[in-house]
């Protein structure tokens, strides 16, 4: 309760910054269909969502909670209108997923305690993933007739690379990884490592239902390439059943740091970049 109030307060206090960053990132997203929607409309929708989101964060735990109904109703409304406008599911879901980075930035610049930071980032990423998937589902329900193409997109969707902290990037993957899309996603991560000079990249596979040898090979190749560029990867989201299966397949992940959850991986990453954590979080808080 206390924690939720704090999260909500944080968002409320930084409302304008978040809104500005969020709208900007939506406008910059490759998935934005400018021809389909006016910028003013996008801004209005974002503002309304953010205010509903803040209220629900304060009063309800998961999105199954009744407190999230206003948010879900609102998403239902904009999803329907986007379906009619001809948006694809991933274009619609970008509305939610692009909110991650602005929220993370605010949490990061507000919280000093790494434990709290991890907990809040974890809570926020889980919420937004769930809302994003909810939007995708809604979208799908709204367009039965082109279900096939959309299923493909649902499967191929992956959330963007986010910066969790100075020197730490995260790539939360959702869906199947055996398409040409994987290549793009992985290249994107490497590109971001170059741009940000990140020391650690966390690849979170919580949202990947099946890890077969092709997926494992993609992951290992990415880890090796990242290493050549001076960044270490941590693979998180390895659930027990996935761990067992990987071992039976005979895939050797012993050279890679693996963790059960993104939060665990983030803790390790903070430890490894220890010096800079204390410096940036305590002595020079960012605004």
């Amino acid at each position: 309760m206390e924690k939720r109030t704090k999260l909500a307060e944080m968002v409320r206090n930084q409302h304008d910054v978040i809104l500005k960053d969020w709208v900007e990132s939506q406008l910059n997203a490759t998935t934005l269909r400018r021809e389909l929607m006016k910028e003013s409309e996008l801004r209005e929708q974002s503002r309304e969502f953010l205010s509903l989101y803040t209220q629900s964060v304060q009063s309800g735990e998961g999105i199954g909670d009744a407190a999230w109904k206003p948010v879900k109703d609102f998403l239902g409304q904009i999803t329907r209108s986007r379906v009619l406008l001809g948006f694809t599911p991933s274009e619609t879901a970008t509305f939610i997923f692009s909110l991650k980075q602005p929220l993370f930035d605010v949490i990061r610049s507000t919280l000093k305690d790494p434990k709290e930071l991890v907990a809040d980032i974890w809570a926020t990423t889980t919420l937004l993933d769930n809302l994003g998937l909810y939007v995708m589902e809604l979208h799908q329900q709204n367009r039965e007739e082109v279900i096939h193409r959309q299923q493909e997109e649902l499967l191929e969707l992956s959330t963007p690379v986010v910066q969790l902290f100075e020197n730490i990037l995260a790539l939360p993957l959702i869906g199947t990884l055996d398409s040409a899309r994987t290549q793009v996603v992985m290249e994107n991560l490497l590109q971001r490592i170059v741009e940000t000079g990140a020391m650690i990249a966390i690849i979170d596979i919580t949202g990947v239902p099946t890890v077969d040898t092709l997926v494992a090979q993609h992951l290992l190749k990415t880890v090796a390439a990242a290493r050549l560029m001076g960044a270490d990867c941590i693979i998180s989201g390895i659930r027990p059943q996935i761990a067992q299966t990987i071992v039976h397949l005979g895939v050797d992940l012993s050279e890679v740091t693996t963790k059960a959850t993104l939060a665990d991986a983030f803790m390790i990453a903070l430890q490894r970049t220890g010096a800079s954590v204390t410096k940036s979080a305590v002595s020079q808080p960012k605004g």
Partner: peptide, 17 residues
Amino acid sequence: SLVDQTKIVTAASELAR
């Protein structure tokens, strides 16, 4: 069980490919 599901699904994925 979840483990058994995951095993057969993963094998299916390999052989289908």
